[in-house]
Amino acid sequence: METIVFSLLNGTIYGLLLFMLSSGLTLIFSMMGVLNFAHASFYMLGAYCAYTIMGVTNFWLALLLAPILVGAVGMGVERWGLRKVHANGHVAELLFTFGLAYLIDEVVKIIWGRTSVNYKVPESLDFTLFTLYGSNYPAYRIFILFVSIFMLVSLWYLLKKTRVGLIIQAALTHPHMVGHLGHNVPLVFMGVFGAGCALAGLAGVIGGNYFITDPAMAVQMGPIVFVVVVVGGLGSLEGAFVAAMLIGILQTSAVSINASFADIFGFLGMTATSEVGGITIASLAPMLPFLMLVLILIVKPTGLMGDREV
């Protein structure tokens, strides 16, 4: 019972963080039709910016400023980079973001060093909120939960209930029509790209000190985010949400399962001492998202809720 509760709680938090990252990516994808390979790099930038801002002022200001800063960088990239490359087609855009990811990686290493920085949870949030089954639960995790849910609700409200959201949704599917109606479509694109990057930056701000802030965080997070977007269905926010929660909970709970292949397939005569039988479910945890990716692509190439092929 306690295992299930903890797995659900930790999995939900991890899933929400994943969603915050992938929501921006999936928005940008629906808009430009191109996967932004540099998306996880903006997540890293967010964490590092927050670390620097926190050093000068405090965490709360960092929480506000870092995403804005990262969003501004994202807008700049769209305005002076992607927009020019866009004329040369999707492949050029893809290569552009690919190169950008490496560029940001190196810039981060030059500015903040090649090893991890000591980006800490703020003291005002560094306490035990409650004790569950003899295990302390840190307040910062619940804080992540609330920030994520707040972001989720605001994003939903913005896209579904406001005029801005209406124009964005229209521009995503019928950019020419929206342009003819007198709206500045390039501006909308720039805004969405910036907002997507800001969301990744926000995930970096609250995820950087929950996990660890080092130059490898983008490379390690990148593949998982793509899995979320593809499994959820390219361009579908709802799908990304479901996929993120699924992967978060699946990966976290797999770690707490002690069973090995021998326990599961014992009836087939597999023993715990054999090469395959000795593999435990827990050790498979890092592989599960990718297994899911492969299976989804075979069974339902559009993803859980997407409407277009990958």
């Binding site: 306690e2 295992t3 903890f6 930790n10 996990f211 709970s253 770690v255 707490s256």
Partner: peptide, 8 residues
């Protein structure tokens, strides 16, 4: 995040 391992 080692929390799942710690809880185990």
């Amino acid at each position: 995040d080692f929390t799942p391992y710690i809880q185990k």
